[in-house]
Amino acid sequence: MSDDITNEKRALRAELRERRRIITSDERESATAGVTRHLEELTSELGVTSVAAYLSTPDEPNTRDFLHWACDRGIRVLLPISREDGLLDWAPYDGKDEDEDVFGMPTPTTEVLGPIAINSVDLIVVPAASVDRSGMRMGWGRGYFDKTLGSMERCPPVYAVIFDSELVDTVPSEVHDQRVNGVVTPGGITKF
């Protein structure tokens, strides 16, 4: 059974990567504006003073405008740094310099904090390949965010950032997969 789910996830991820790859620059620009506006709205609505988020890759919905907005307003931003042992370290982000972690993912260049630094944030913004209408998140297969969220004693609201078409009826899931409280898309905010 688990092999079937793993294969189903692998096929769905490949399809989603291809769909993201062919999005036009005009569509990306429009999506960035929508995602930024809705992340700002969510952050303001929740009264967030600190957020754990991520620097988007070129094929993901763009989070950089939102992160710069948050930094400009004095909101503390923590970004993940992938470790080879499967855990995430966190680093404060100032909206400036970026580097790459062990997997080539963009990360800040500031001091590295340990995995428990995320325990002090008011909101967690995570990447996803797809999310279903029950809040089940399907990530990209490394399990970093599932491990992090599953280990937290007191987890603040968690929102995934995806394109509108990636909010679907169901996604394949396994025991370790973690649900999110909502999604932010170019078209709006959906809460579960």
Results as ranks from 00 to 15, higher is better:
A129D: 00
L79Q: 01
E98I: 09
M138Y: 00
S173F: 07
S2M: 14
P115H: 06
T6R: 13
E98H: 04
R76D: 09
R21P: 07
A31M: 14
R154E: 14
S173W: 07
V171C: 07
Y144D: 11
S134H: 15
D59H: 01
T170I: 12
T110H: 06
W90K: 02
A91D: 05
T63Q: 03
V184A: 00
D26Q: 10
T110C: 07
G86L: 01
K147W: 08
D3H: 13
E98P: 02
D169H: 14
V48M: 02
V180L: 07
V35W: 02
E166A: 02
E41Q: 13
F145P: 03
V183G: 06
M136H: 10
R28L: 08
V48H: 01
R76I: 08
V77R: 02
A70R: 00
K96S: 13
L42D: 06
Q178C: 07
M152F: 00
S25K: 15
W69M: 06
S134T: 15
S25T: 15
R179G: 07
P61W: 01
K96F: 08
V158Y: 04
T170M: 13
D97F: 11
S50K: 04
E40V: 10
A52I: 09
I75V: 10
G188Q: 08
E29S: 11
L113C: 07
E98F: 06
R142T: 10
D26A: 10
R28E: 08
A52T: 10
T185Y: 07
G188D: 09
